[in-house]
């Protein structure tokens, strides 16, 4: 389907990140996963005190440093160099995952391959037999955080649905996702399934449903 022809412009990576950032209030402790979620940090205004956690043992992570202020000893979970906010602290890896698994994070935002209407998330492998297995901290975050949001393209590059009745890829965790920010919409996962919170300008509910396998509900 040609999206430009139907009069709407899907959000890009930065657009999805900015949309999710709008909904993160001051005071939350938040973990941002690899990919689009990492970009969310760029859209949280510095005066809004949101404390970012990184799996490798940082609470109070700041933005990417200016080139001459880079610290080789300070990296995020994607091993990119980062900075610290005033008030930041370090913990070792078991304490860092106690923060995650002990239910202390208000929110984690993860990338996704597929999300199902029961909140199942698939984001680490496309089949059970891949030689590579890149789990990292995703299973811990999906189970441990108080809320799990997912940012991802609404469909795959070749137009297949990612918002599904049931995931077809191996699960990261069952029934963990509460909200999805896609390139086309914001969806809440509820007991009755996906509820549409927001659609990008120029796209109708019916057009959104046509790009979605799971049944969508109006608010």
């Amino acid at each position: 389907m040609n999206d430009t022809a139907s009069g709407h412009k899907p959000l890009g990576r930065s657009g999805m990140a900015a949309r999710a950032a709008r909904d993160i209030p001051e005071g939350w402790y938040v973990n941002l996963g690899i990919g689009v979620p990492t970009l969310i940090a760029n859209h949280i205004p510095p005066e809004r005190e949101v404390v970012l956690h990184s799996e490798n043992g940082i609470l109070g992570m700041g933005p990417a440093p200016e080139p001459h202020k880079e610290n080789p000893w300070l990296v995020n979970a994607s091993t990119q160099r980062v900075s610290l906010r005033t008030g930041a602290s370090f913990v070792h890896h078991a304490d860092s995952f106690a923060i995650v698994r002990g239910g202390h994070l208000d929110l984690c935002v993860l990338g996704g391959f597929q999300v199902a209407e029961n909140g199942d998330l698939a984001n680490w492998a496309q089949s059970a037999t891949e030689a590579g297995r890149q789990i990292g901290g995703a299973m811990d975050l999906a189970v441990g955080a108080k809320r799990v949001w997912v940012t991802m393209e609404h469909t795959t590059k070749d137009g297949r649905a990612r918002i599904l009745r049931r995931c077809t890829y191996p699960l990261t965790a069952a029934a963990c996702v509460s909200r999805v920010y896609t390139s086309l919409a914001v969806l809440d996962v509820t007991p009755k399934g996906f509820v549409v919170i927001d659609i990008i300008p120029g796209l109708s509910f019916e057009e959104l449903q046509a790009r979605t396998e799971a049944e969508l509900h109006r608010e």
Binding site: E55, H93, V100, G137, A138, M139, D140
Partner: peptide, 23 residues
């Protein structure tokens, strides 16, 4: 990854928090 694929080595892949907690 190539060694695992070719059967020269095995891999046990576990969630990072489970790895840390097991240690």
């Amino acid at each position: 990854g190539e060694a695992v694929r070719d059967g020269r080595m095995t891999a046990e892949v576990v969630p990072q928090g489970t790895l840390a907690e097991r240690i």
